[in-house]
Nucleic acid binder design. Structure first.
Ligand SMILES: [Zn+2]
Ligand SMILES: [Zn+2]
Length: 649
DNA sequence: AGCACGCCGACT
DNA sequence: GTCGGCGTGCTC
């Protein structure tokens, strides 16, 4: 028997490519089990190579009859590694869990049939659907307000793709993957779609994974991770709510799902559909540059009218309970009197959001993180919202006093106040008040059944929920959002306000949206109509002037370590070396400075921000930064490279 | 990431 | 003289 040598990609946080030999013939994309130190792990065959000049171990076994991974999939892995300057082994580890990589492919049963309900597309929808060509790469961006019928277009194109014999992958944010969506899709497809998200039981995940991988099922609805299910016959990828920040992965490789879907579509040479009521500024820019094709859906569904939006200047009105602008309060009184429904949106959990020492005025901060504590009255505790450390008794770190003055307000304080004014008319929804999906759904049902007039909550209630009876939305915390140290702060605020406006007065009732702010002069308040690209013109011109993405490429390097001085020194050396490079002419390097979270879970954090006019120069700098770091790091010091960062905190 | 190797303090 | 602390470095 002839011995052949193969490069195997292993899910380990290194480059991950190791050479093994085998007596049998192997194929690219097959899974194999190999010895690695004292462990046995599953890897992927990359290619056959000549006998290397070092000792190799033997492959223990081959797992697949036919390769699980296509050549395109392996190209995809390589491109992710190169774009995010992330070792390939770490890419594999970051996108496929060990359980998935070891998943046994068993026999499948025919997918379950489901009754069909056909719908008729409007001319506008049909035209867009018809303009999407199959079997060739093109990225389509569909901008259409909530309920304008984006989903109908997705389904129409999906049917065409399935009829042509290929598979469709439909990706939505985790939070939107609801039983209602699954049911709607089942009616349209005539079969039950495969489902994929991290909360599935192992048994269910195995079934859905196998069905889609073997082409037994033609349609998969999934969250972010579904993109990496190695199906070999995908003919269309749809990314709904493409602007969603939850599509950005926090851990390495910190990829953005939308960008990865576009990258994969390019490799597979298939169409991509991105949809959103409020696309990201990046995507609109890409459409303007001709990289994407923009389709705007302008018709509003069922003659629904845009709600009346009013900006309330908090400096020129009474604040009821020192928190709620009088017009919002009056409107709530009317709602309760007329037994209608309203939503109050506030982006802060807890009771008081700022706790100041009564003696010396110092702000109470978490001992592990440089973050202000928030009090929770129901728990009689204060909490750090980053590390969840609980404080039963606060002690001032400056003067030792134990008496604190409470300022600022979160949902708990607003609830207490509204409850005192309108007893038994309020339901509060945030991650504090609803511990499980069950209580969340129970509370939503109670509101739907009109058991309360006012729904109070955090962003949790702004996304994807549909309450036909709501005629009033009050937005309390938009100033917090706009004040974040993030060049996307205005974009986030705009997206949130447009979304909540879509919640008020759909169908037969006309609605009102009141937004209270200390900064009524902010231009976005006049752009919430969202029928044209006015906001995007304004936002993109700001980004251009300040040289932020999409006009430049950005990466953030976060150094973290228990020893503050050594952490700073390593960051400083890295920054200085980068500044002395010959490529530095095309780079702007900021820092090191205290990261926005200067201390997190007892580790000090410094950050360097690198801005570049080209992707290649940025990548060169990132590779060099990693090398410098590897050379001078101490102990458990960490460097996190975040390309195209989203959370600027 | 694991896991071993290795070089110093305190324990039978 | 040896058990175990975790700092350092490699894994085909
Ligand atoms: Zn903390
Ligand atoms: Zn004090």
């Amino acid at each position: 028997m002839e011995i052949t040598y193969y490069n195997i990609l292993l899910p380990v946080p290194t480059e991950g490519v190791y050479t093994y030999f085998s007596e049998g013939l192997l194929h690219t994309g097959e899974r194999v089990v190999v010895p690695f130190r004292k462990r046995e792990i599953t890897g992927i065959v990359l290619e056959k190579i000549e006998k290397p000049d070092f000792e190799c171990k033997e492959i223990i076994m081959v797992c697949d009859n036919t390769p699980l991974f296509s050549k395109e999939y392996i190209t995809f892995l390589k491109n992710i590694a190169s774009y995010y300057t992330c070792p390939m082994g770490l890419v594999l580890q970051g996108i496929l869990s060990e359980k998935i990589l070891n998943m046994e492919i068993s026999d499948t049963e025919p997918v379950k049939k489901h009754p069909i309900k056909d719908i008729i597309l409007t001319n506008e929808q049909q035209e867009i659907a018809d303009s999407i060509q199959l079997n060739t790469y093109c990225c389509h961006l569909i901008k259409g307000i909530t309920g304008s019928g984006k989903t109908e277009i997705y389904q129409e194109v999906a049917k065409k793709v399935i009829n042509s014999g290929r598979q469709v992958l439909y990706i939505v944010p985790e939070i939107s993957l609801t039983p209602q969506l699954i049911e709607r899709l089942s009616y349209r497809l005539g079969v039950e779609p495969s489902i994929y998200h991290y909360k599935l039981t192992h048994k269910a995940r195995k079934k859905h994974f196998t069905d889609f991988v073997t082409d037994n099922s033609k349609f998969m609805l999934g969250a972010r991770s579904a993109l990496f299910v190695p199906a070999k016959n995908i003919g269309l990828i749809i990314v709904d709510e493409e602007h969603e920040h939850s599509y950005k992965q926090d851990e390495s490789p910190s990829y953005h799902l939308r960008d990865m879907a576009v990258m994969y579509g390019n490799i597979l040479n298939i169409p991509i559909i991105l949809g959103s009521a409020t696309p990201s500024a990046e995507s609109i820019y890409n459409a303007e540059c001709g990289k994407y094709v923009l389709h705007s859906l302008l018709e509003r569904p069922n003659n629904a009218t845009l709600p009346k939006i009013e900006i309330i200047d908090m400096k020129a009105t009474n604040l009821i309970g020192s928190m709620i602008a009088e017009p919002i309060y009056d409107e709530l009184s009317n709602i309760v009197k007329r037994d209608e429904q309203a939503i109050i949106l506030l982006n802060r959990k807890g009771y008081s959001t700022y706790l100041y020492c009564q003696q010396c005025g110092a702000l109470a901060e978490c001992v592990n993180c440089s973050v202000g504590l928030v009090s929770f009255k129901s728990k009689n505790k204060s909490l750090c919202r980053y590390c969840n450390t609980e404080y039963n008794i606060l002690t001032c770190s400056v003067c030792g006093s134990k008496i604190f003055q409470e300022y600022g307000y979160g949902t708990e304080k607003i609830e207490e106040f509204l409850e005192s004014m309108f007893p038994d008319k309020i339901i509060r929804i945030d991650t504090e008040s609803v511990s499980s999906i069950k209580t969340l759904n129970k509370n939503l049902k109670r509101f739907e059944n009109k058991e309360a007039n006012i729904l109070l909550g955090t962003q949790l209630i702004a996304k994807g929920l549909h309450f036909p009876e709501v005629t009033f939305v009050g937005v309390l915390g938009i100033d917090n959002l706009m004040a974040l140290p993030d060049f996307r702060a205005m974009e986030k605020a705009y997206q949130l306000l447009v979304q909540v406006s879509g919640r008020a007065g759909r169908e037969h009732l006309s609605g009102k949206v009141y937004i209270q702010t200390m900064n009524p002069e902010v231009p976005i308040f006049n752009m919430l109509d969202n029928t044209d690209l006015e906001f995007y013109k304004w936002e993109l011109s700001r980004r251009n002037i300040t040289q932020y993405p999409p006009f430049t490429k950005l990466a953030r390097l976060i150094f973290s370590y228990i020893n503050q001085e050594e952490c700073y020194n390593t960051a400083k050396i890295t920054a200085n070396t980068l500044k002395s490079l010959k490529e530095a002419a095309n780079l702007t390097i900021y820092g090191p400075k205290d990261a926005t979270l200067a201390k997190l879970q007892n580790k000090y954090r410094y950050e360097i921000l690198i801005k570049s006019s080209t992707n290649s120069d940025l990548n060169k700098a990132l590779i060099i930064a990693q090398q410098i770091f590897n050379k001078c790091k101490k102990g458990a010091m960490r460097l996190k490279i975040d390309k195209d960062p989203y959370f600027m905190m």
